[in-house]
């Protein structure tokens, strides 16, 4: 790791004020390993853990609002999240391993937007909204590409709003080594229609409109009969080919619908 200056500001404006020359540090589960590998070498780390506005979970019957610094383990264990959006609690409880969940945060995960990360699936699948220090960004606009988001330089995620779905489920086929998603599918029947989001398969999470239309007619596993994906441009790596990932998508989608119906 190259040397850096370390700051732990006490208020949000101070944190954002330092961002021109620094990087935010949340759980450090992605940033610190990349700094060790010198893939990134910030001059200054702005630790977000001293900012009270960024932690905690607020919920009402319409939405669950989660602070950016809320750890995956807290989301997984939250009685409110488990009651209102059990699929989201289960998703958080399946990220990495318990040690990663004890440090990693919602804001850090979405800001990174790893192609195989789980939370981007929930953001698209539930039609969530990212609230930053300067604006609100709809989930559909937030995710823009591989490791890329609509965040401007220095823009800080403060919290994320997840609307409560009538029913929802997330099923992933985890990489056995890291438990990142080879393919994960988030299915939700929301107030504005059925949403189906896929993560892990391609450069970034995306929606499957053909699957959504089929489930909109009838929210049942049979509705997905015969539906598949071409796999064009899907990820290929040592864990699996693009064809393999393409074959996993409909399987995970059917399992997710079955799981949503079983809730």
């Amino acid at each position: 790791m190259h040397p850096f200056e370390y700051l732990r500001p006490r208020d949000l404006a101070a944190a954002v004020g330092e961002s021109a020359t620094g990087n935010y540090l949340a759980g450090g589960m992605t940033l610190l390993p990349s700094m060790k590998l010198r893939l990134t070498s910030p001059e200054k780390l702005i630790d977000l853990s001293g900012l009270p506005d960024l932690v905690g979970i607020q919920a009402d019957s319409a939405a669950v609002v989660i602070g950016a610094m809320t750890r995956h383990a807290e989301v997984a264990a939250s009685a409110e999240v488990r009651r209102l959006i059990p699929a989201l609690a289960a998703l958080a409880g399946g990220i990495g391993d318990p040690l990663v969940r004890n440090r990693g945060t919602l804001g850090g995960s979405l800001a990174t937007n790893d192609p195989a990360a789980d939370y981007p699936g929930a953001l698209l699948g539930l039609g969530g909204t990212v609230v930053t220090d300067r604006r609100e960004i709809a989930g559909d606009e937030f995710i823009t590409g591989m490791f890329s988001t609509a965040l401007e330089p220095g823009e800080l995620i403060v919290r994320v709003k997840f609307p409560v779905a009538r029913r929802a489920a997330y099923v992933k086929f985890p990489s056995p080594a890291s438990r990142y998603a080879m393919v994960g599918v988030f299915v939700a029947e929301t107030a504005t229609g059925v949403r189906v989001a896929v993560t892990g398969a391609a450069a970034c999470a995306f929606r499957l409109t053909a699957f959504e239309a089929a489930l909109q007619k009838a929210f049942a596993v049979e509705s997905l009969e015969g539906l598949g994906v071409s796999g064009d441009g899907y990820n290929q790596d040592l864990h699996g080919s693009a064809e393999y990932r393409a074959s996993l998508v409909p399987v995970m989608a059917r399992r997710a619908v079955a799981a949503a119906l079983a809730r």
């Binding site: 450090g28 610190l32 630790d47």
Partner: peptide
């Protein structure tokens, strides 16, 4: 009170 990987946490984060 929470188990963490101490190779992936800065000492200053434990202040």
């Amino acid at each position: 009170g929470r188990a963490v990987k101490s190779c992936t946490m800065l000492a200053v984060q434990a202040e």
